[in-house]
Design a protein around this nucleic acid. Structure first.
Lengths: 145, 145
DNA sequence: CTATGTGCAAATCTTTTGCAGGCTA
DNA sequence: TAGCCTGCAAAAGATTTGCACATAG
């Protein structure tokens, strides 16, 4: 399970459609359903393909797992999502697009945002000549104390 | 390719055997071969299973890919290696055990150490109640400029 | 000798792809 | 209508597992 997904309300659906529109993606039934689950309540989400697929079925929407994968990939390419890699066995897709730190809960394999104002990097290794920094991933791995 | 692996010299082999001994692992032929490739020259290595397997065959050692996987996993459990996750399609195993930053070269899918003295984290988000920080992964993703 | 490793092939799991049919603009 | 989407099943990779045989201590 990936957290509590919002019910597929009218408001959530509209928000999803608007979100797709911003990226110039056609609002097909499946895309709208997935978009509503991802951004319907305006909160950030860290979804896995499998989890989103389950949530979609639970809402009574008919989608194939392959389409969920293809759609998530399409959303990434359109700049609507960001892929975060923390676990070799699973990809996470983040609705928040800026460079920010994550908490990774090792026991539940859950990924959540860490408060970015609490992260201050005073100095960062300089990128080697001929390269530039594309992104800095900071993952704080948590263990139950 | 995962970098230049040291020739399977006597010195490298001995270093490998010592390394296994430290962790109380039996020095079987395959393990010694892999250990020599990993720590034979004393430098840090970021190996993938596939790459290590290829290097092993190139040295004329007979090993199966499954054994490489199982052995890398065993080395991790014994505390000889650390798994680093930066790419969802591949696992990297690092011979350096302390918490340090990495450069990830997006174009070649290569992983290298970033100079840890150049990373200064002034402030880190506090772990939520009931949890403690297991590790902080910092991955600087590089793009060819 | 006995517990641990190893090899191989087959199984598993996540993700991608090919292609025929469906639906949006 | 034309082209982009979707569904399904099959393919593709990476990694793990089961089991018989080999080997270190």
């Amino acid at each position: 399970m990936d957290g509590i997904f919002d019910q597929n309300s009218i408001a959530a659906t509209e928000r999803g459609i608007r979100w797709l529109g911003e990226a110039g993606l056609r609002p097909t039934r499946q895309r709208v359903a997935l978009a509503a689950l991802l951004v319907g309540d305006g909160r950030n989400r860290h979804a896995t393909a499998e989890g989103l697929y389950a949530a979609c079925l639970a809402c009574g929407e008919r989608v194939s797992l392959a389409t969920v994968y293809n759609t998530l990939r399409a959303f990434c390419e359109a700049g609507l999502l960001q892929e975060v890699t923390v676990d070799a066995t699973r990809s996470y897709f983040d609705t928040r697009l800026d460079d920010h730190p994550h908490f990774y809960w090792e026991d539940t394999a859950e990924l959540t945002d860490a408060p970015s104002e609490e992260l201050q990097i005073a100095r960062l290794p300089a990128p080697p000549p001929g390269t530039e920094v594309a992104r800095v991933d900071v993952v704080i791995r948590l263990r139950r104390g």
